[in-house]
């Protein structure tokens, strides 16, 4: 019941914010320039190592318990798996999010800008059971953490 109340309250707020936000929509970015910046080699890499090499220039990372990954033990639907990553360390430059057993493992990169706090969430697709991996670049070094997520075929989702 608490859940219901929460989401009701939240939604009322979000709708109001949404309407205000829509007013200022204009595509100021030049699409060509942006597409060029997209790291094709990293995102199209079929293996973890190739993806990490292309994205970060290295494959070895230090396992760190300062990185927290929040993801379900079992994905209720592999098409929408909520993942949150946070890192309790200073000088974080970027976070890479990978799904080890996806056809192309690199899912997203997050590059911190001014005042960036390493605390990101998104929802990703997972084709198979496997690890969700976060690689955090801080002070020029690579740190990582992983969390196993089971992806199953549902009886009624099929």
């Amino acid at each position: 019941m608490t859940t219901n109340i929460k989401r009701r309250v939240f939604l009322k707020g979000s709708l109001a914010a949404g309407t205000a936000g829509v007013a200022a929509s204009a595509g100021l970015l030049a699409p060509q320039a942006v597409v060029a910046a997209w790291n094709e080699k990293a995102f199209k890499a079929k293996s973890m190592d190739d993806a990490l090499n292309a994205a970060l220039g290295a494959t070895s990372t230090d396992a760190s318990d300062k990185i927290k990954i929040k993801a379900p033990d079992i994905a209720e639907n592999g098409a929408v798996v909520p993942v949150s990553i946070s890192a309790d360390m200073s000088g974080v430059e970027s976070i890479a999010l990978l799904a080890a057993n996806n056809n192309t493992p690199l899912v997203a990169t997050f590059n911190m800008g001014a005042g960036g706090v390493p605390d990101v969430s998104t929802r990703i697709k997972m084709a198979n059971t496997g690890d969700v991996i976060a690689v955090v670049k801080a002070g020029g070094k690579l740190h990582s953490a992983r969390k196993s997520v089971k992806v199953t075929i549902g009886g009624c989702g099929g």
Binding site: A37, T104, T109, F110, N111, M112, G113, T122
Partner: peptide, 18 residues
Amino acid sequence: VLTSNWSGGVSKNPYLSF
């Protein structure tokens, strides 16, 4: 404050929090 690059591995109707 943030630049995020994605593959098609982010879910349909994407959600992002930072």
